[in-house]
Design a protein around this nucleic acid. Structure first.
Lengths: 252, 252
DNA sequence: CGGTACATTGAGAAATTTCAAAGTTGGTGG
DNA sequence: CCACCAACTTTGAAATTTCTCAATGTACCG
């Protein structure tokens, strides 16, 4: 599981140019045929003409800081990232989880600045596609426009469910809902083996997502483990009772 | 204040056709020049060719029920509506507030069904614009496309702040943030007089928005009143200490 | 003038947070 | 290979916030 990695803070992530990217990354990317990325690069020669920058961000470092000028759509190629808002008092709320192939906040794709930050959970390889190219292609390509609208709507649905979770549901259900949503996403990617899947979030990050304190998140995770629902830790989740996990995660 | 009104549940809202609408409503609408509505109807003759249905929904009735087939973008012309998700256990989470001129969930504009419901808080006049016309105009009119992208991004920002509120902030701050956001929206509309503005939500609805119980929402509102911050009730909010309200509502 | 929905209050229970300390783990350098 | 360090996890106990239940008060509509 090459998902972990700790880095000293403050280092500047490396940036490669489009030329080296083509040879080294996008050309062999497994994700090319799915998601926004695939739709964007679809069509003859498109890959060569889309301007993009790829960079590597070590785990725990920021991919983007709230308020910075942003000049393109941000796509996660490898690793996990979280989109979050940092409060002056030090608390953070994680707004969404980005996995390989995910676009960071489809709805915000053409914004010049974001109110949120993006942090690498594991080592992350990300890719930035210039506004010019995104707009050009969205305008030209009805299928891409369609894909983007669907992604935006899906993002809204996801946010709505998260609001329901935070507003109406207890700690256990919220954590179960998080685990279950990742289970489904990993299953879709074929990354589920023996009811086990990669889950590199720390308890601190689970807490930041679910609006709990790390201590309480720990207790909830312990309860799920003792209840024989699933084991969470060491970068993975092992589902022991999927039926119960689904029951907890479901609205009821 | 023509904001209140109780209706027996179950009645079927009335529907008028486009012809009568033009004469009776849209032609004289104050909102025509702002927001999505204005952009949509912009251009010669557009008003006459956009297919739309206007209807009146009494207070407390649903404008839309989760899961129903939806055939057009929903616009609020008059009154207040809430977008919410109903849980099987009877609880509800209000996801957003729609005021005159607001599009219901810009991000979901082309979805055939919604997971959320929409309920009239006051008597509501709403307008539905067929997918065909929305798409046609968005494709044809770059300014409208732009407006729509901006609305979608704003909706996402709003959802993000709501997630922060529900996940990280206490009851008082959440209620203050709600009141403050409505204060700003009313101010923008020029509906603020003597630091007082229309606010037709019941405490039950404040609770559903902020993820509190009605009883606790009542206590918070009482605390704000006793603290000399603002008086909430009888369909209005009177701001007594705007500085303090802004301090409570701000992230800190 | 009722009636119904809405608002308020009190008291006790439950969920969650806070604070503090001790255990674990994984990576690093000797 | 081992020892150590830093970050992460676990546990306990007490404080705080929020909820629940139940009763009473209030405003508005017909």
């Amino acid at each position: 599981m090459a998902l972990n990695g700790i880095a000293s803070s403050g280092a500047v992530p490396s940036v490669t140019n489009a030329a080296s990217i083509h040879a080294s990354r996008c050309g062999i990317c497994k994700l090319r045929d799915s998601s926004f990325c695939g739709a964007l690069f679809n069509g003859t020669g498109a890959l060569l003409t889309v301007e993009r920058k790829q960079r590597i961000t070590p785990a725990r470092q920021n991919v983007y800081r709230a308020g910075e000028i942003n000049d393109g759509a941000l796509l996660i190629c490898e690793g996990w990232a979280v989109r979050f808002i940092q409060l002056p008092n030090g608390k953070r709320q994680i707004l969404s989880l980005a996995m390989p192939g995910d676009l960071i906040s489809p709805a915000s794709i053409l914004e010049g600045r974001f109110a949120f930050s993006v942090q690498a959970v594991t080592k992350v390889i990300s890719c930035k596609i210039s506004f010019r190219d995104v707009l050009l292609r969205i305008r030209q390509n009805p299928a891409l426009f369609d894909t983007w609208i669907k992604l935006t709507a899906a993002e809204r649905r996801q946010a709505d469910m998260q609001l329901v979770d935070l507003g109406q549901r207890n700690a256990t259900d919220r954590v179960a809902a998080l685990l279950h949503s990742v289970l489904l996403r990993q299953e879709e990617r074929g990354e589920l083996m023996n009811d086990e899947f990669a889950f590199p979030l720390t308890q601190q990050q689970i807490a930041e997502f679910t609006g709990l304190t790390p201590v309480h998140a720990c207790r909830v995770v312990a309860k799920l483990r003792k209840g024989g629902v699933c084991k969470v830790g060491h970068g993975t989740v092992k589902v022991l009772d999927r039926f119960e996990l689904e029951r907890l995660a479901s609205l009821r």
